Simulated assay, not measured.
Amino acid sequence: MSDVEKAAAEAVQAAQQSEQYALLLAAVQAAQAQQQTPCHHPAPVPQSSNAGKWVAAGVGGSIFLLAVAVSAVAVAISAVALTVCLLVLRSVWQQIREDRQERRS
């Protein structure tokens, strides 16, 4: 027998053993399923806690409102800074115009 023929014979034998093991395993599982008696106790109903949801909603809402408040303060500071900047530039522009008029005179 050549090596290829030996390998083919061993492969066939392994396939047959695999089928036998599969049948044996199925028989064992069927026997275990028949031996098990169904449990007649009602399963406990899981209690859902609403407290965690409310705490999460409160924390999330607080963070959101804090972010809105900080944004409002930032907008207010920006508006004041822009107003001051415009007033200073207006005053500088008026001085430049007055200096130009005095030079022409």
Rank of each mutant, 00 (worst) to 15 (best):
L23H: 08
L65P: 00
L82K: 10
H41M: 10
R97Q: 06
H40G: 03
C85I: 03
E98V: 15
V55F: 12
V59L: 15
A56M: 10
F64D: 05
S71R: 10
W54T: 14
C39T: 13
A8L: 14
Q13V: 02
G52E: 09
V70D: 07
Q94R: 13
S78W: 13
R100S: 02
V88I: 10
V80Q: 12
S62A: 08
S91Q: 04
V59S: 04
A51V: 08
R90H: 01
A51G: 01
A67W: 02
V75G: 05
G60D: 03
W54V: 15
S71G: 15
E98K: 14
Q17I: 11
Q36H: 04
I96P: 00
S105N: 09
V73H: 06
C85T: 12
V84D: 00
Q47H: 09
L24I: 05
A22Y: 09
V12D: 03
D99M: 08
V68E: 03
E10N: 11
E19Y: 05
A26M: 11
I77M: 10
T83P: 00
Q35T: 08
Q29D: 13
S49C: 06
Q16N: 05
V45C: 02
R97F: 01
P38G: 08
T83W: 05
A33V: 09
E98A: 15
A67Q: 06
G60A: 04
A14C: 04
E102G: 01
Q35M: 15
G58T: 06
N50F: 00
A79P: 01
V68W: 02
A27Q: 15
A7Y: 03
P44D: 02
N50R: 07
A8V: 07
A33D: 13
V80H: 11
R104E: 03
A27N: 12
V92R: 11
A72K: 09
H40F: 04
A43Q: 14
A14L: 13
V45H: 09
A72Q: 08
S78M: 09
E10D: 11
R100Y: 01
Q101N: 06
T37F: 00
Q29M: 13
L65N: 03
Q36W: 01
